[in-house]
Structures are given as C-alpha cells and as structure tokens.
Design a protein around this nucleic acid. Structure first.
Length: 201
DNA sequence: AGATAGATGGAT
DNA sequence: TCCATCTATCTG
C-alpha cells in the first residue's frame, strides 16, 4: 500500500496535477458527500507572493506549515469556506487549493446544501461551492485526511496526462501569470477563468 | 485604530 | 459590473 503522506510531501506545483481524479469525502450527521477533484491550484508558501503564507506563519496559516495530508480551510471574502490539501515537508507552507470537483456520492445532500436552484455540474464548481457542497467550515481546519476520520482523501484514477490542462491561477493579483492551476480538459465541473482586476499587466 | 484588499460567486 | 460580508494584514 502506497504511503500517501510521502506522496503528498512533494512541492505543491508537482503534487497538484496528480491530485486530479482523487476523491475527498466528508461525513457528518447529515450524511456523506464525496467529490472527485477536477480542478486544483498550487500555492508555494514562502516563495509565492500569492500564497497566504508568503508573509510567514500566522494563526491562520499554521496548518499550512504542518505535515502533508492535512486540510487547510480558510474563509474567503467573508462568505465562503475554501479548502487546501497541505503538501511539502513540515515547516514548508506548500498547499493545493481544491478548486472544483464532481459530486459522486451524497447527491441529495450536496444539492440541498448548494440550494435547489443549483445545477448538478455547479454543485462543487469553484472553491467556495466545493466547500459548501462538502459542508466544510473552520471546524475542519487542520483535519488529517489520511487517518480514516470524517474527512478522507483517497487516490483515484488520474486523467490521462494529455487531458490535463494548466494555466494561470484564478483571481490572484500577484504572480498572476504563474501557470499553477491544473484542470481536466472539457470537464463541465471546472470553474471558468477570471483574472483578478488588480493583477498587474 | 482605521483602511483595505482578498486563492469567490451570483445577480444585474 | 456590482455587491454581500468579514478578517488578516498593512499603515499611521
């Protein structure tokens, strides 16, 4: 059996595309929702001006500096909960933002959480939507994804390399052209690209 | 202490 | 293009 922790201990830009096709499941009293990842973005701590960890360790970014295989959850725009898989060695704030996925378990619950008006392909389309579909919040910050708890990350069938596209990250104003976003080509659950209005250039 | 920009998403 | 909603971080 492969050592997933070791697999995730590489740097985010290298680990990220390999997470496409992996499955993340969250079980609560309401039930279980699982998604298969279709879009991810790499953030490279100290060297990456777009990373929350660029300015060092703070209470918010503590989890990112920890061991690989844990979940870093943060509040976005005061509204959404977004989740990252922590990668890299301990002390290195490397992480992969989970931007989108396809719901493969718990359709009714995911639909309910996202609102009756949401279409199936939009249930986990975009990091805020993915967090909402899975029922994530601050309570999941720091959760170990490899210990068989209520949150579990499991390897899945990777898309063929020629079906993985890459490009600039969405919404970042600094390092706006670094191509560290990876997605499954032509997958309808992948979010649409929006460049930050503050991005240079 | 006050300002502000932000790894978004949905409506207009 | 605008706005909801909030907080980490920057500035003075």
């Amino acid at each position: 059996m492969p050592d997933l922790r070791e697999l995730l201990s590489g740097q985010a830009p290298e680990v990220a595309p390999g997470l496409l096709g992996w499955r993340l499941s969250h079980t609560t009293s309401e039930g279980t929702v699982s998604v298969v990842l279709t879009e991810v973005e790499a953030y490279q701590g100290g060297d990456d001006p777009a990373s929350h960890a660029f300015r060092g360790l703070t209470p918010r970014t503590r989890v990112m500096f920890g061991a690989a295989g844990h979940l870093y959850v943060y509040r976005s725009y005061g509204i959404h909960w977004c989740a990252n898989v922590v990668t890299g060695e301990e002390g290195c704030a490397s992480a992969v933002l989970l931007r989108a996925g396809r719901v493969v378990e718990g359709h009714d619950l995911a639909h309910h959480r996202r609102g009756e008006r949401a279409s199936e392909r939009s249930w986990a389309r975009g990091p805020g939507c993915l967090g909402q579909a899975l029922g994530l919040s601050a309570a999941q910050d720091g959760a170990d994804l490899l210990r068989g708890g209520s949150l579990v990350l499991t390897p899945g069938a990777a898309p063929a390399p020629e079906l993985v596209d890459r490009g600039p990250r969405v919404g970042v104003s600094r390092a706006a052209d670094v191509p560290w976003r990876f997605w499954v080509r032509d997958d309808p659950t992948v979010s649409s690209y929006r460049r930050s209005s503050r991005a240079a250039g």
